[in-house]
Design a protein around this nucleic acid. Structure first.
Length: 578
RNA sequence: GCCCCCGUAGCUCAGUGGAUAGAGCGCCGGCCUCCGGAGCCGGGUGCGCGCGUUCGAAUCGCGCCGGGGGUACCA
């Protein structure tokens, strides 16, 4: 089988990009937004009546509780107390007294030191189920992004060896973020920066060549700091098998650049296979070599120099990031004349903003790159102050520890030994791999429990959630013959509570997107699955009561839709049966 | 030394400055002739320490202690 050919994107060539259909047609149902608007109206009315003193416009905070105290609660009156100079309790009461009526609210009251507590109307909640089903796969999304062009760059591991488990975490997070941004109305480009040039690639080429020559019976030196993994000789054997002796030179490849490209091609092929199996796709594979060939690095060096951010010292060219802070001074061009990773990365990011005009760029980096963050921001600021007014976001994912049989192994190339993504994937499969990476906040170091992740039973949260979805589908298969029935249906609090849980989904998605925290979706889904399983165990959906059966089937369809949408955001399959 | 991340239940981790801090796993006990199976219910211990800001701190600030990472003319 031929190795997969990758076409590396060169930005000077126009490229067709898939335009995604808008995620949602109408305004998204978001309970807290409605309540916030009501409260603002109530405050204005209270002020007009002279019950509350003047304030600037207030954006009322709403907390979703869904407990004995309230469905939603606002503590804004406590904060207003200082501005208005009145007791919070009295402010809250004045606002509530002036609140306009709304079908979404069944009850409002003040409580404690000045909380305003809301209860959502049961009939209104059940009425929203039709809206969920109407929105279908788009439910939960929004138009918040308004088509703004955002690039998410992730993984971008050097093609000099297999992906580590840690790279998998970054990949899954970047992919989920891209899905979230897409759902929230952004125009998303997913990009992998291919480090196919420079010193590390040279060393890779020589490392592979050493084995390649040996396979063909000739000796070639192994480079200092060469790559020592078993894969190096595997790649060499593959090249010898496919290409024969055409690369043989005298101790070095006959064409070093082309041989390096050959090795990179194999490395990238393996990386892409891993990512494919994890369900991670990219719109753009950006070639560093192509960018260098266009002279982008020289251009950016000139631009920096022209603005006085460059100084020569000890034969090297340095970036002087203003104010003379030490951590803002780094080498751009080595004394031997070649640019550093830093210089090339500045050129790359300039390309993102200036050449390709992304309004926002999100980089997902591994923890080992975090020292690079401040100087990257400094460089962007130097090039164009407006370019870094929050337009470049760098998310740093923390380390991954792999736990097997209770034993913990840490990742790290320095240790020489690390668990590959492929090993994790083969062990637990893509669904569990994605789930566990997406169940922790990105800045928290995590331990991946392989023993739990590979279980295919409900003790494993990912199967528990998928099972909830399959169960919804199963109920509908059972009820396939049941026709629609009108008439009043008697429902329970559990029906309404489950439905209300569904209406929280758009709020969770919006928060996850805004905060770049996909794990919020993961936790929501686990909670929803638990509520659903509990409901299922307690209540029968399909019964002789035709009216109630119809209502409950609608509820179950909506549950299934939300589970499917949530799993979709995480890139995890939502099976019809298990 | 300096910089970054983290410290919450036995373990793995959630927790927009708000009311009584949660889930999963593990452990113990009970239920389940049920649309879909491996499902459900119950049981308990915790915010590393101190000071500060605030009406209110797991959350914000400072200082310690502990863990991890970074600190190259590597990437």
């Amino acid at each position: 089988m031929p190795s997969p050919r990758l076409s590396l994107y060169s930005p000077s060539i126009p490229r067709e990009r898939a335009r995604h259909a808008p995620a949602v047609r109408g305004p998204t149902i978001m309970i807290r937004s409605r309540l916030s608007a009501l409260l603002s109206e109530g405050l204005v009315a209270a002020q007009a009546a002279g019950a509350v003193g003047a304030t600037p416009a207030v954006n009322f905070n709403l907390e979703r509780r869904d407990d004995e105290l309230a469905h939603y609660s606002s503590s804004e009156a406590l904060r207003l107390a200082r501005i208005v100079g009145a007791p919070p309790r009295r402010i809250a009461e004045a606002i509530v007294a002036n609140l306009p009526a709304a079908p979404v609210v069944s009850r409002v009251e003040t409580a404690g030191p000045g909380f305003i507590n809301f209860w959502i109307d049961d009939a209104w909640v059940m009425g929203q189920l039709a809206e969920i089903l109407e929105a279908g796969a788009a439910f939960g999304g929004s138009q918040e992004g308004a088509g703004s062009r955002v690039q998410v760059e992730y993984v971008s591991a050097n093609p000099t060896g297999p992906l580590t488990a840690g790279a998998g975490r970054g990949g899954v997070i970047g992919d989920a973020l891209a899905r979230l941004l897409d759902a929230c109305g952004y125009d998303v480009t997913r990009e992998y920066y291919v480090n196919d040039a420079g010193h590390q690639v040279e060393i890779l080429g020589l490392s592979v060549y050493h084995h390649y020559a040996a396979t063909l019976g000739e000796a070639a030196p192994f480079p200092a700091d060469g790559y020592r993994g078993d894969y190096v000789s595997d790649w060499a054997e593959q090249i010898a098998r496919d290409d024969g002796a055409r690369w043989l030179g005298h101790g070095v490849p006959s064409d070093a650049r082309a041989f390096e490209a050959r090795a990179v091609e194999i490395g990238l092929g393996e990386i892409r296979r891993d990512l494919d199996d994890l369900g991670i796709k990219f719109d753009v594979w950006f070639s560093e070599q192509a960018m260098r060939d266009r002279g982008a690095v020289d251009e950016v060096l000139q631009a920096l120099d022209g603005q006085g951010f460059v100084a020569e010292r000890d034969g090297a060219v340095w970036f002087i990031g203003g104010a003379g802070a030490d951590d803002r001074e780094n080498v751009l061009v080595r004394s031997r004349g070649d640019p550093t990773y830093f210089a090339v990365d500045i050129a790359y990011h300039r390309d993102k903003f200036e050449t390709r005009g992304f309004e926002r760029v999100i980089d997902v980096w591994g923890a080992d790159h975090h020292g690079h963050v401040p100087r990257m921001h400094a460089a962007m600021e130097a090039l164009d102050r407006s370019a870094d007014a929050g337009r470049l976001e760098i998310l740093v994912t923390q380390m991954v520890g792999i736990r097997t049989d209770g034993e913990l192994g840490r990742q790290g190339k320095r240790s020489g030994k690390f668990v590959t993504l492929r090993e994790v994937l083969d062990e637990v499969g893509p669904a569990a791999t994605r789930y566990f990476f997406l169940s922790k906040a990105i800045d928290s170091q995590m331990e991946f429990d392989l023993d739990l992740a590979k279980r295919e039973d409900p003790e494993n949260p990912v199967y528990y959630i998928q099972m909830a979805h399959a169960r919804c589908a199963g109920i509908q298969r059972t009820a396939a013959t049941a026709g629609a029935a009108g008439g009043a249906a008697t429902l329970t609090d559990d029906d309404v509570a489950l439905a209300r849980r569904l209406l929280a989904f758009p709020e969770v998605v919006a928060d996850a997107c805004e905060n770049r925290e996909p794990h919020r979706v993961t936790h929501y889904l686990l909670d929803l699955a638990r509520v659903f399983h509990s409901y299922y165990n307690k209540h029968r959906v399909v019964t002789d009561d035709a009216a109630r059966t119809a209502r409950r089937l609608e509820l179950i369809r909506a549950v299934q839709q939300v589970l499917a949408n949530g799993l979709g955001l995480l890139g995890i399959r939502a099976p019809e049966r298990m």
